[in-house]
């Protein structure tokens, strides 16, 4: 399936990556190329095949309901580009 510049613009927007106008067409070509190569998967008969999301055969392990983490704001704020008064400070969100 060929991807056009408009699709790249939409996907880049979803992924929150600024792509300059001039990059949209080249990216569309690259991604189309990769998707074209990927399309050979359509040759595989997957009728009735259970999708395999993980190679692990076990089931989800469970943790006890015990407080064993958190309680240290400095630990999570220490790498923040901006913080103030215990909060992460981020660009203004317009509701």
């Amino acid at each position: 399936m060929a991807v056009d510049a408009e699709t790249v613009r939409r996907v880049a927007r979803l992924a929150r990556i600024a792509e300059p106008e001039a990059r949209l067409d080249p990216l569309a070509r690259e991604i189309s190329g990769i998707l074209g190569w990927i399309e050979q998967l359509n040759e595989v008969d997957v009728e009735g095949v259970e999708p395999m999301a993980t190679a692990v055969h076990a089931t989800q392990p469970l943790r006890e309901d015990v407080v064993a983490d958190g309680g240290d704001p400095a630990r999570v704020l220490g790498n923040a580009p901006r913080s103030d008064d215990g909060f992460f400070v981020v660009p203004k969100v317009v509701e």
Partner: peptide
């Protein structure tokens, strides 16, 4: 929360 943050006028611009 961590790492590099670029400039931008709006939140979306900063993300992008």
């Amino acid at each position: 929360r961590f790492g590099y943050r670029a400039g931008g006028g709006t939140l979306t611009e900063v993300y992008e």
